[in-house]
């Protein structure tokens, strides 16, 4: 009787009974009559006899319907509205390529412009308009010392 819901009902036309049978000896300990009609099961579930199993006889047990349920959307609910036979034409692929390239070019141009602007802000040493043709610049490093000549004494 443990698997009967608290809100279940007993249905019968002629009434029935609940027998409490002892588990070990099989002796009938008690028998509770159920009147005919639609009878709530809750008061009968309260009866408990230790060491005995309840057997419901001549009565249908109707459990309440579950409170949860799934509502189906019906046939074709998940079908797409798009044309299943559509195939992109090569023209549209070309157009996408072209757009992609244009975007890349624009990004490159913008980056170049930013770099040029940054370069313009740099301070530079102006070049001499008349640079020396010959620049005999002395090296700050000492010239390699030639091997000492034999001392003439």
């Amino acid at each position: 009787m443990t698997n009967i819901h608290r809100k279940a009902v007993f249905l019968s036309a002629a009434g029935g009974r609940i027998d409490f049978v002892h588990d070990e000896s099989g002796e009938l300990l008690a028998s509770v009559a159920i009147p005919p009609g639609r009878i709530d099961a809750a008061p009968y579930l309260d009866i408990e006899i230790e060491g005995a199993t309840a057997e419901i006889i001549d009565v249908a047990v109707v459990n309440p319907r579950s409170a949860y349920g799934a509502v189906e959307y019906g046939e074709g609910s998940f079908d797409t509205a798009a044309n299943p036979e559509f195939q992109p034409t090569p023209a549209s692929a070309l157009e996408a390529d072209m757009r992609h390239m244009m975007r890349k070019l624009q990004g490159t141009e913008k980056r170049l412009q930013a770099r040029m602007a940054a370069l313009d802000t740099l301070e530079r040493i102006p070049d001499n308009p008349e640079p020396l043709i010959e620049a005999p610049a002395p090296s700050p490093e000492p010239a390699p010392v030639p091997s000492p000549a034999p001392a003439a004494e």
Partner: peptide, 18 residues
Amino acid sequence: LEYFATLVVKALVKHGWP
């Protein structure tokens, strides 16, 4: 001082100034 002066003069010579 000599290091700094040489750096400056080197930069100037690089741009053609004697």
